[in-house]
C-alpha cells in the first residue's frame, strides 16, 4: 500500500485515491491529424524510473494533484 501525500489532507493510504495515469497531457488545440489524435488518446509514457502522474483523492477532499513516483522503488515525492 502506497502512502501518498495529498496537498490538502496530508499523507493518506493509497486506497483512498483513484489513479489518473501520466500527468501533463494537454488537450490538443485546433485541427489534429489521425496520428496526433491517436497519440493524445492512446500514447502515454511508460518509464522504468521516475514518473509524473495524477492521483484523485476520491475518499477524501476530492482534489486532483500530481506527484512523482518511481516505478521500481515506488518512492513518492512532490512533483517539481
Amino acid at each position: 500500500m502506497l502512502l501518498i501525500d495529498c496537498p490538502h489532507c496530508g499523507p493518506r493510504d493509497e486506497n483512498e485515491y483513484h489513479y489518473g495515469g501520466q500527468a501533463g497531457i494537454p488537450y490538443p488545440l485546433g485541427e489534429t491529424t489521425d496520428e496526433e489524435w491517436a497519440a493524445f488518446v492512446f500514447l502515454r509514457d511508460n518509464p522504468k524510473g521516475w514518473f509524473r502522474e495524477r492521483w484523485f483523492h476520491a475518499h477524501g477532499c476530492r482534489t486532483w494533484f500530481d506527484v512523482e513516483r518511481h516505478t521500481v522503488t515506488h518512492e513518492v515525492r512532490k512533483a517539481r
Partner: peptide, 13 residues
C-alpha cells in the same frame, strides 16, 4: 494494481 510499475510487487489491499 492501478498504478504503473516495474517493481514486481503490488499492494496487500
Amino acid at each position: 494494481d492501478a498504478y504503473n510499475s516495474y517493481g514486481q510487487r503490488g499492494g496487500v489491499h
